[in-house]
Nucleic acid binder design. Structure first.
Length: 669
DNA sequence: GCTGAATCAGTGTT
DNA sequence: CAACACTGATTCAG
């Protein structure tokens, strides 16, 4: 048992002067602070008369719609101070909204939940209270306290859309009020003051709408989704009414490698407590104190409550950015004290992952092993179906049945136009001498984009547009110009895999940030008149821009930027210069394997650029939201136009949809 | 209720 | 690139 603690671990009865470390706060617990290693057995003894606080036994309500799934989902504890059982949303959350930074006034509309409060709304520092825009984007007061998958997605997408837009404005120096070095902070603060956040009510256990395996690219995303409240702190805690008194229990931790955590194992974490001059440059560290997060973890180690674990790591492809993975619920199994390198005493907490949860971090570990070749894959068929056509190999895997290959096709990276294809519309690229610079209105390509550089400096699409104008081969700018995102090939390790019931599908071994270019729809451009014939002949690989696609909002909310910078038409309708129909049956790339979903992870965006002094249209796919590794990539196939016109015969060409989403329309095609 | 301290960020620079 | 400096936001303690 003690061997499992690692070589560095010091027996608690060792030379450390415990009193020196532990004497900081009067401890209200009757239990010894650190149980001896020999006592830390499951049969942990509580003093007689002390009944452990553990209200998870009898779930009286099912968690909201299919979040993490599985029987392991505990019933969330209601917050202390929050009256239990009040069914309606009226005054339930009093006490947790006292420090409202949002929604002070809702522009005339009634605010029932604040009715009981004494009306001492004195304006803070002569600033007018921010307008509550929650309703505008569809977040009710109740949803701010308790989220759902839809609300979490909405909040996170609002955040990233705004952050991307702020980056764009900053890079183009279009901001009216100073510069924004931290678009993540600005975006988060803007959303929070307008009430665009969710799961504000703290809870133990899973958070409705956040699924195990979800990934985040900023700490602020954890914050507004309600997964982990502190903007920097690694330990989030909440007050709980225990058997006899109020206690502070840990509800979630972030382990991102800043301390000497041992997080190599995918089901175990040795987490280091907070404090102790760990970040000071002087080598001498001081003893950590048993207060704040450390105290909460200590309490939780005895109450055995579930603690959410978020694992942070450096992105392999993007070393300057960090990725946070929600790895589900853990329990603290053991805790002890160690001597840190700098000399101070540190608290260590051993967390064990609750069994039966969907895999999350372990998927990352597996991918790591596959990539390094240190582990064999089951069902592995081919290392690269592109046969070198892509700079990153596209693997082929079948873990489902014995089919070894998709039907034959030629891998091709872009569009092939028929000889007869003629645009008769001469066009010219930009005349920039180096790389095109955001905000440079001398660049004709930027002017075509209504003055906005369509991508951020890290190559992420800022917003959906009627048409994205990229620089192309005809442009004079350098090939490294950042306005050629969709022409630079695959950037992720893609994989064609056999799905359980939908044939072959596409996924990525790498995490993908929202707005990242994934691939274009490659294939042969076909004449519009031939489409129905091709379909009759069984061509299932047709992309048709003239189909009817459902509308969805992806761009930032312009009203959030009223005082910050210019905003404009937020229309997300496409404007095709001409209809484009592509068949990927004989020639195509990975895009031909993407399946349909009614709640997709990917969307398409028309892109044009100049080739041979003519502008050619392309279909580019971008990530709709952050996509964890090994998640199937899907987009919305839309409806054939004839279906709408002919009505009753509509079902003829339709297929039963197997996307399995809660918003499934039942059929597509 | 207010203020300031604490904190497993994120960028940019050397 | 690793170390460092710098500017931060949120929450909680006092």
């Amino acid at each position: 048992m003690e061997e499992g603690l690692g070589q560095n671990s010091v027996p608690p009865q060792g030379p450390i002067d415990k009193s020196r470390i532990l004497d900081v706060k009067p401890l209200r617990s009757l239990i010894p602070i650190f149980s001896m290693a020999s006592q830390a057995s499951p049969s942990a003894q509580y003093p007689s008369g002390f009944s452990p606080f553990f209200p998870f036994g009898a779930p009286q309500q099912t968690p909201t719609g299919g979040t993490t799934g599985g029987a392991a989902t505990p019933t969330p504890i209601r917050a202390y101070r929050s009256p239990l059982g009040a069914g309606d949303t009226g005054s339930t959350m009093e006490g947790f909204t006292d420090q409202d930074t949002y929604g002070k006034k809702k522009r005339g509309s009634p605010q029932p939940r604040r009715a009981a409060k004494s009306s001492v709304d004195k304006p803070k520092k002569s600033q007018e209270p921010p307008v509550d825009l929650g309703d505008l984007v569809g977040i009710s007061p109740a949803q701010r306290d308790d989220g759902s998958r839809e609300v979490v997605n909405l909040v996170l997408m609002s955040f990233d859309a705004l952050r991307r837009r702020l980056c764009q404005l900053e890079e183009a120096k279009e901001l009216s009020s100073g510069s924004i070095k931290r678009a993540d902070l600005k975006a988060c603060n803007t959303l929070m003051t307008r009430g665009i956040r969710t799961n504000m009510r703290k809870r133990i256990g899973s958070v409705p709408g956040v699924e195990i395996g979800d990934i985040f690219f900023f700490r602020m995303e954890l914050c507004i989704a309600g997964l982990h409240a502190p903007s920097m702190g690694g330990i989030d805690a909440m007050h709980i009414r225990g058997e006899f008194e109020e206690e502070t229990l840990a509800v979630s931790i972030v382990s991102s490698g800043e301390y000497d955590d041992d997080a190599e194992d995918s089901d175990v974490i040795i987490y280091t407590g907070q404090g102790g001059n760990f970040f000071k440059k002087d080598k001498h560290t001081i003893d950590q104190k048993l207060h704040r997060g450390n105290l909460a973890l200590d309490r939780s180690s005895r109450q055995h409550n579930e603690v959410r674990v978020i694992r942070g790591m450096r992105d392999g492809a993007n070393p300057n950015s960090k990725i946070y993975v929600y790895d589900g619920l853990y329990k603290i199994q053991d805790s002890w004290i160690e001597k840190a390198k700098g000399g101070g005493g540190v608290f260590k907490y051993k967390l064990i992952r609750t069994p039966g949860q969907p895999s999350a971090f372990s998927v990352w570990k597996s991918v790591q092993k596959w990539k390094s070749g240190s582990s064999e894959r089951t069902g592995f068929i081919l290392a690269d179906i592109s046969a070198g056509a892509e700079s990153i190999p596209v693997s082929l895997v079948n873990e489902v049945d014995n089919v070894k290959m998709p039907t034959q096709f030629n891998y091709f990276h872009s569009l092939r136009h028929p000889k007869s294809f003629s645009l008769m519309k001469p066009s010219h690229g930009c005349a920039c001498t180096k790389a095109c610079v955001p905000g440079d209105l001398n660049c004709s390509c930027i002017r075509r984009n209504e003055g906005d550089f369509p991508y951020t400096g890290s190559g992420i699409l800022v917003g959906r547009k009627q048409l994205v104008h990229e620089c192309g081969p005809t442009c004079q700018c350098f090939p490294n110009c950042k306005n050629r995102v969709s022409q630079t090939g695959l950037k992720h390790h893609m994989e064609v895999f056999k799905t359980k019931n939908r044939g072959w599908g596409l996924r990525s071994l790498d995490p993908i940030r929202a707005g990242t270019f994934i691939c274009e729809y490659a294939g042969e451009v076909v004449d519009r008149a031939k489409v129905s014939q091709l379909v009759r002949e069984g061509d299932e690989y047709i992309f048709d821009t003239t189909r009817i696609y459902g509308q969805f909002k992806w761009n930032y909310e312009p009203r959030l930027l009223e005082e910050i910078g210019p905003n404009e038409d937020s229309s997300e309708d496409y404007a095709m210069p001409y209809p484009l129909i592509i068949s990927a049956k004989n020639f195509g790339n990975v895009a031909r394997f993407m399946n349909h979903s009614c709640s997709p992870t990917v969307f398409w965006q028309p892109v044009v650029y100049e080739e041979n002094n003519q502008s050619y249209l392309h279909v580019a796919f971008f990530a709709l939201r952050h996509i964890p590794p090994m998640t199937e990539l899907t987009y919305d196939y839309g409806f054939a136009r004839s279906d709408h016109a002919e009505g009753s015969s509509a079902a003829k060409g339709r297929k039963k949809c197997l996307c399995g989403s809660s918003k499934c329309r039942g059929s597509f095609g």
